[in-house]
Write a protein that binds this DNA or RNA. Structure first.
Length: 480
RNA sequence: UCCCCCUUAGCUCAGUUGGUUAGAGCGGCUGACUGUUAAUCAGUAGGUCCUUGGUUCGAGCCCAAGAGGGGGAGCCA
């Protein structure tokens, strides 16, 4: 019996062989009627039922089969006599691999709040909801690599520690080995970074884009997929201090090629989830429907999770210039009735969340790509359009999440880029290598960044970003 | 960082105008039952009412400060 090889529950359920002796290892979800064990090993959202002959099993052993305990079960696979499952294991032997004291184990066979589960993030993977999210997250990671690989893109690892302070995407986390209580000082009494590990100030990356651009100017099409760190004091359901971002950079792509790729990419990911995660999505869909029932009619969404995913996969995104968007917003009902907190008056102001939501959720009712933004509200590296006022930037906006992708055609003309850097006042010594790309064999190129967790939010229907990453890092929280 | 809301049993929550001994469901424990499906039935234990200070004869309830959590805004992906 000892040398019988373990079978994963997914394999058992996908291709059951009635009468075969099998061994399964996993965690007890419930133990009903002193007889029926629901066992889950995370290979699928579905449990296998173990049927115990309780009359011929040691009572002390039965007592240890509690919710959360880890067990190994051996027996013959049989067609189930009950109704809720097709097959079950007629248990011959049970081994308790790890007890879970029922008075202390916090998970119960009942619905828990997401807030409570966040506090026990080391255990929440043992729930249906979170194991489904973990599995979908994995499928999406794989799909990202497959999408780009199939198109001839190369994955590039850009540095996590950066010596550049010019990425321009927000506050950075400092990386140092200096003693915080007694740092090395120079003659003027300032901190002497020459004594620091790298001999200069260093930070955690806020974007791999600039390094990614160097790679695309030799490999043509590349993408990065790595951790990203922002020390912004953001407390929202869609921001993390540590998150994962996918950043493709493509030589010879203009802004339209860039938008085409972004749209195809997002649709590919959604389709991949629909095709490969149906059990988990069906569970999350039902979970969301149950959740909706507790809300007032007004706040319920018109489409279910699965309907939303199919809608995005099947419909073209709406592409609208910033200027057109301003016209739509200026003439919109909420603007005329002064319902917007920030009223749209003229051209040039950045759009607020409420405006983006109006365009996506009320006006177009589909994902929207806004492009050609005023240059003054966008980053220095974005390519200036011939009108002298706008840059070839684009944002992909999703319902409920907002900006899921931000990108642009990059400024490839040395003179214009140099002038912009000077205007904004970025020290050229930090960007000499970035400028050299424009000196030696420069080429039109484009790229974008996709917030991976925001994508997972959309695919899983989870409304808080802290629930789609195993151990979220947010201001005042680095537990686990 | 700003605005709003919340914090009562392990979990989810109720608790009347401030009034005696703070409740329910689920979970735990004990027992019954034994083809269950978040099993069912009976019994039982379990409380720093977030913390500190204040008002009051009396505070879970009122006031102030703090802590933790949530929602929204800004920043962005």
């Amino acid at each position: 019996m000892k040398d019988l090889k373990r079978t994963k529950i997914k394999e058992l359920l996908d291709a059951p062989v009635i009468g075969k002796k099998v061994n399964v290892k996993g965690w007890v979800r419930t133990f009903r009627n002193n007889q029926f064990i629901a066992i889950n090993d995370g290979s699928t959202i579905n449990n296998i039922q173990g049927v115990v002959d309780f009359e011929n099993t040691d009572e002390k052993l039965l007592k240890r089969i509690t919710t959360g305990a880890c067990i190994s079960v051996t027996g013959d696979l049989a067609e189930s006599k009950g109704k809720g499952q097709s097959v079950e294991i007629i248990v011959e032997n049970i081994e308790i691999l790890g007890d879970a004291d029922p008075e202390k184990f916090p998970l119960q066979p009942k619905k828990h709040s997401l807030e409570f589960l966040r506090e026990i993030a080391h255990l929440r993977v043992r729930t249906n909801t979170f194991s489904a999210i973990y599995r979908i997250r994995h499928a999406m990671i794989f799909a990202v690599h497959k999408f780009f690989t199939d198109r001839g893109f190369y994955n590039v690892h850009t540095p996590i520690i950066t010596g550049s302070d010019a990425e321009g995407a927000g506050e950075m986390f400092r990386v140092t080995t200096l003693d915080p209580a007694n740092p090395a000082k120079d003659e003027d009494g300032n901190i002497n970074y020459k004594e620091d590990f790298f001999g200069k100030e260093t930070n955690l990356t806020v974007s791999g884009q600039l390094e990614g651009e160097t790679a695309c100017m030799g490999l043509s099409e590349i993408y990065t997929f790595g951790p990203t760190f922002r020390a912004e004091n953001s407390n929202t359901s869609r921001h993390l201090a540590e998150f994962w971002m996918i950043e493709p950079e493509m030589a010879f792509y203009d802004i339209n090629d860039n938008m085409d790729l972004a749209e195809a990419f997002v649709k590919y990911l959604v389709n991949y989830a629909l095709d490969n995660c149906s059990d988990d999505l069906a569970f999350l869909n039902q979970r969301a429907l149950d959740d909706e029932k507790t809300k007032p009619q007004q706040e319920r969404s018109e489409l279910s999770l699965l309907e939303r995913l199919k809608f995005v996969a099947e419909n073209d995104f709406e592409r609208v210039t910033y200027t057109e968007a301003i016209d739509i917003l200026r003439n919109s009902k909420p603007n005329k009735k002064k319902k917007f907190q920030y009223l749209i008056e003229g051209w040039g102001a950045d759009l607020q969340s409420e405006h983006e939501r109006f365009l996506v959720e009320k006006h177009f009712k589909k994902p929207v790509i806004l492009y050609n933004y005023p240059k003054d509200i966008k980053a220095f590296y974005m390519r200036q359009n011939d009108d002298g006022k706008t840059v070839a930037a684009m944002d992909v906006l999703f319902p409920g999440i907002g900006e899921i992708i931000g990108g642009s055609q990059r400024e490839e003309r040395y003179g214009i880029l140099k002038q912009r850097i000077d205007e904004i006042g970025i020290p050229e010594k930090d960007l000499w290598w970035y400028l050299e790309l424009r000196k030696f064999g420069s080429a039109p190129h484009s790229g974008f960044g996709l917030g991976f967790e925001r994508m997972i939010q959309f695919v899983t229907g989870m409304t808080n970003i802290r629930d789609v990453i195993p151990f979220p890092r947010t201001p005042d929280n680095a537990e686990f």
